[in-house]
């Protein structure tokens, strides 16, 4: 049996004096898993921990069977992990094109600068603008393009639809589905937008107080109103 791409066992993460993750168990073999939950339950910390951006972590973090807990971000990147971080975090001193030049790994890989421009024509129009001169949506596209140019095996997306117009969200959802369905990328999607999460992902995991408490197929979770109420505090309207 092949090893799952990402396997977390009893992952604890501490920021300052506060323990944020309280033993996360999560397996992501392939495809797309969405992690949903209310604000402040530790979803972003989970993303950052997998990328190696949280120094104070314990437990087990395996990538394709290899134990990688505690590795710095550039080593995780070397193992094929990329992140679209919350808040985009584009570089203020670099122009759009400079971001992409810096991130491009090789012209022979699936994702190249040209392809990013084809996917997000808006970025091509703004190639000479600096990271801070872009609108929120443009910054988000840039952050996604930057991560895709690393041609990762595992792409972590932390709230990618935040601040985007409904039309762009639709495009982005289609892109994410294409990435895991036809390009073999594995996606870990953290999403506030519940509709986006269940429509894009194959499976949905619910996080409460730093733990994964429930996991289900996206299609059955979408209609499981009892679970919505219990885990997310959503009423029938959702």
């Amino acid at each position: 049996m092949p090893e799952p791409l990402l396997e977390l066992r009893g992952l604890f993460a501490t920021l300052g004096n506060t323990c944020i993750l309280h033993g996360v168990d999560l397996t992501l073999a392939s495809g797309c898993l969405a992690v949903v939950g209310r604000n402040g339950v530790g979803k972003s910390t989970l993303c950052r921990s997998i990328m190696g951006l949280v120094p104070d972590v314990t437990g087990r973090l395996r990538l394709a069977g290899q134990e990688l807990l505690g590795r710095p971000p550039h080593e995780m990147e070397g193992q094929g992990v990329a992140i679209v971080p919350q808040g985009r975090r584009t570089f203020p001193s670099l122009t759009v094109h400079e971001h992409l030049r810096l991130a491009q790994k090789s012209k022979a890989k699936a994702w190249t600068i040209e392809r990013v421009y084809q996917t997000f024509p808006r970025l091509a129009e703004r190639r000479r603008n600096r990271g801070t001169q872009l609108s929120g949506g443009e910054q988000q596209m840039l952050a996604i393009g930057r991560a895709l140019l690393r041609n990762p095996r595992l792409l972590i997306l932390d709230e990618p639809s935040e601040g985007l117009s409904p039309l762009v969200v639709e495009q982005l959802s289609a892109l994410m589905q294409q990435l895991y369905r036809s390009e073999g990328m594995t996606l870990l999607l953290v999403e506030q937008n519940f509709r986006v999460a269940v429509s894009v992902a194959e499976r949905v995991a619910v996080m409460i107080s730093g733990r994964i408490v429930h996991e289900d197929e996206a299609s059955s979770f979408a209609s499981d109103h009892e679970a919505h109420e219990r885990f997310l505090g959503l009423g029938e309207a959702a």
């Binding site: 990328m51 710095p72 971000p73 550039h74 990147e77 001193s93 971001h99 030049r101 810096l102 790994k105």
Partner: peptide, 22 residues
């Protein structure tokens, strides 16, 4: 690209690391 990496690293060291530069 080294120059780009320096400027990026000054802006946001963590994100520079996350795109593979030590």
């Amino acid at each position: 690209r080294v120059g780009l990496a320096i400027r990026a690293g000054v802006d946001d060291r963590e994100m520079l690391s996350a795109i593979g530069v030590n």
